[in-house]
């Protein structure tokens, strides 16, 4: 693979991740079985499981809100929660 095509592939992979702003990943702790599929798929390496098992929202500043963890969770533990912006 040439350097050019490697760069191109990488670029495509990056584009495949849609970043959604103004929201966060919220967990239903009762559904979580602590399998770790979420954290394994996190592109920035957040230990999503530690939030999910406690039913917390993923408040890690490194979270790029890509939603990968939501998609891969086999138990439907994670969901997207829009952040309400206080206009005042």
């Amino acid at each position: 693979m040439s350097l050019f095509s490697r760069l191109f592939t990488k670029e495509t992979e990056k584009e495949a991740i849609t970043i959604v702003h103004l929201g966060r990943v919220q967990a239903d702790g009762g559904r979580c079985v602590q399998c770790g599929v979420c954290g394994y798929n996190c592109p920035v390496g957040i230990d999503v499981r530690s939030y999910a098992r406690q039913g917390l929202s993923v408040d890690d500043p490194a979270c790029i809100t890509c939603g990968q963890c939501i998609q891969v969770c086999p138990r439907g533990t994670l969901r997207w929660e829009r952040m309400v912006i206080d206009e005042a």
Binding site: Q34, C35, G36, V37, G39, Y40, R49, R53, V72, P74
Partner: peptide, 10 residues
């Protein structure tokens, strides 16, 4: 094959 064995360590 969704996760490697070490990943189940919680």
């Amino acid at each position: 094959g969704e996760i490697p064995p070490r990943q189940v360590i919680a």
